[in-house]
Design a binder for these strands. Structure first.
Length: 601
RNA sequence: GGGGCGGUAGCUCAAUUGGUUAGAGUCCCGGACUGUCGAUCCGGUGGUUGCGGGUUCGAGUCCCGUCCGCCUCGCCA
């Protein structure tokens, strides 16, 4: 009988003398001839050494033990014994189990790789193909456990704060704006399509109107866009919404949640989160999710740059919204060689900048790079950047958007390259006061910076309702009641106070270029719902995958997802996506236009 | 859609400037071994160098195409 009495992680000196049964996989084996075999048995909870030895173990069992190989799945029964020499590396190292009987539950075939061999870990492709073997590794088990704990603490925390978990549909209608939808053809409604949710945004707002008051859901979302190291087409949100709540209430509740998570999972006590406006974040850090673990802030020197004869500076200032900004890189004069700085120029070029003008500050004077142009402003530049000997200054000179983006990205690269990011630091902050809209010159229309259901701040509402769409400056100056939670330069959550007045929502739709007719067609249910006594409400959504990435120190999102997809959207284990039968397509009223054969039959 | 890096034994890697029979560790198989814990020692199996084409007397190595993986720009309200 193989039924276990203990896990492989729990036996200690206190169990000596007990007869126990363990189930698990062979993590390693060490044979010493026919009379003595050691096997390390592993399950989710740990590793225990079991011994097959002549005298204590029947001869036939010793022989069977000698045939065990890595990853065989077995049950062993035996007596716990104190070891002569303890193994301090494992929790159960004080004891071993002398095997009396064994059942091989399942013999392994030749392994594509050995999960316990951490030094010869295969490439990710192989790990994904044999994910069930990869997930057996203690590191992956630890990540899965952390993810479970995050989900559990999330439910506990919000339950305690009066939130109700409600499920929303996976088969939704496609809505304009936002990411590309995954579509599902309808069999019953010929020619019609469902979309998988990009987020349950509208449903949770409707739940507020429906009186749910406080809503929580840990939910899969789908966005058919290209993946990144921290982005997957299919991902999980912790989705939240609160009725009768202002921004302060939402931020306090969510900040408390983050603090609870970090305390309970990592034992880290987080201080109150600083807050920063979008404008300040862009000005000082060149990005809307600043990493405040290090300096390297952007400093505007446009006024000084105008006094130089440097064409790159003066040319930039002639552009609309042209600026010149500088970053002081302390003590980097020797590290940042010409070659490295040339690399930085190439780096910023992908963001539309021309290059990275630079100068070193050595022996009280600028040298190298564009030093010769800095003469007229040398003293004031030293003062404004607070330069000391051995510093390097890099510049950005362009329209505000390009300059800010380039230096913001460069700032992060420099910090990484020079090892300026402190280990173990947790810098959280809120970014708020985002613009409602951005005007795109190419398409000649406005886009929501967050999403079209984000309310303007209370102070802005009347100005917003009165805004003339033709007055781009005014429209772009309207501030929304949105907020992002940032952790170490990564956006882990974002939300807003929502529009709960129908006329405000209609105004947003009209600014986005939706005619009244289109707005009615696509969002009639929302507009209608807003007309029946909608409460003020707001919420947020956290990226569960990213939270777990931070908490486990993993470098890509696939590590924290049990069965993730590759950069080309494939599941290498089950080989999805894949072809289907012609009959299935027919039933769904769908015909493929792909060039290559795409059906199974 | 654009750019970059990578693909050699089941796995991790090596292979001089383009040069003889593509090597090592590990896994696996066989043998030895009674206190190991990365056990040790001896022997063995194992290769369409991702795939297709080209250049060359000769290609793992150079060129073109293609597939796959990762990273990145665009994209991601």
């Amino acid at each position: 009988m193989f039924k276990r009495t203990h896990t492989c992680g729990q036996l200690t000196a206190g169990h000596v003398g007990q007869t126990v049964t363990l189930n698990g996989w062979v993590n390693a084996y060490r044979g010493h001839g026919h009379g003595l075999v050691f096997v390390d048995l592993r399950d989710r909870e740990g590793v225990t050494q079991v011994v097959f030895e002549q005298g204590g173990t029947p001869d036939a069992v010793v022989e069977a033990g000698g045939k065990l190989r890595n990853e065989d799945c077995v049950a062993v029964r035996g007596v716990v014994r104190q070891r002569e020499k303890a193994n301090p590396k494992i929790h159960t190292g004080a004891i071993e189990v002398v095997v009396e009987s064994m059942e091989v539950l399942s013999k392994t075939a030749r392994l594509p790789f050995v999960p316990s061999d951490e030094t010869n870990l295969p490439d990710e492709e192989t790990r994904l193909k044999f994910r069930y073997l990869d997930l057996r590794r203690p590191r992956m088990q630890e990540i899965m456990r952390t993810r479970h704990r995050v989900a559990k603490i999330t439910r506990d925390y919000f339950d305690a704060h009066g939130f109700l978990e409600v499920e929303t549909p996976m088969l939704c209608r496609s809505t304009p704006e936002g990411a590309r939808d995954f579509l599902v053809p309808s069999r019953l409604q010929e020619g019609m399509w469902y979309a998988l949710p990009q987020s349950p945004q509208l449903f949770k707002q409707i739940l507020m109107i429906a009186g749910a008051d406080r809503y929580l859901q840990i939910v899969k979302c789908f966005r058919d866009e290209d993946p990144r190291f921290d982005r997957q087409a299919e991902f999980t949100q912790i989705d939240l919404e609160m009725a009768f709540a202002d921004r302060e209430t939402v931020l306090k509740t969510m900040e408390g949640f983050a603090k609870t998570l970090w305390k309970d999972v990592l034992g880290v006590t987080l201080p109150d989160f600083p807050r920063m406006t979008y404008r300040e974040a862009m000005d000082r850090f060149g990005i809307d999710r600043p990493d405040t673990r290090y300096g390297l802030e952007l400093v505007d020197i446009s006024d000084m740059a105008a006094q130089t004869e440097f064409g790159v500076f003066t040319g930039a200032l002639e552009k609309p919204r042209g600026v010149v900004k500088a970053i002081r890189i302390p003590g980097a004069a020797e590290k940042l060689t010409r070659k490295v700085l040339d690399g930085y120029s190439a780096f910023v070029q992908q963001f539309g900048a021309g290059g990275v003008p630079f100068a070193r500050f050595v022996n009280g004077a600028f040298e190298g790079g564009v030093a010769k142009f800095l003469g007229p402003i040398a003293d004031t530049l030293v003062e404004r950047l607070d330069l000391t000997d051995g510093d390097v200054v890099v510049f950005g000179a362009d329209a505000y958007g390009v300059c800010t983006k380039a230096l913001g990205e460069l700032r992060q690269k420099v910090a990484k390259d020079l090892g300026m990011i402190p280990e173990g630091a947790w810098n959280f902050l809120w970014v708020y006061d985002f613009p409602m809209f951005e005007h795109d010159a190419e398409t000649g229309r406005y886009y929501s910076l967050h999403h079209p259901f984000t309310a303007p701040t209370a102070a802005e509402t009347e100005r917003f309702l009165a805004a003339d769409p033709a007055d781009i400056d005014t429209v772009e100056s309207i501030v929304s009641d949105g907020y992002d939670m940032i952790c170490n330069g990564s956006e882990i959550g974002g939300g807003s106070i929502r529009i709960h007045r129908q006329e405000v929502q209609k105004k947003v739709f009209s600014l986005l270029g939706l005619t009244e007719e289109q707005a009615k067609t696509k969002f009639s249910f929302l507009l209608e719902a807003l007309s029946y006594g909608a409460p003020p409400h707001g919420g947020i959504a956290f990226g569960l995958d990213r939270l777990v990435m931070h908490m486990t120190g993993t470098e890509n999102i696939r590590e924290v997802i049990a069965f993730p997809k590759t950069m080309t959207g494939q599941d290498l284990m089950c080989e999805a996506p894949n072809v289907v039968d012609e009959d299935q397509l027919k039933e769904l009223h769908v015909r493929s236009t792909a060039d290559t054969a795409v059906t199974a039959s």
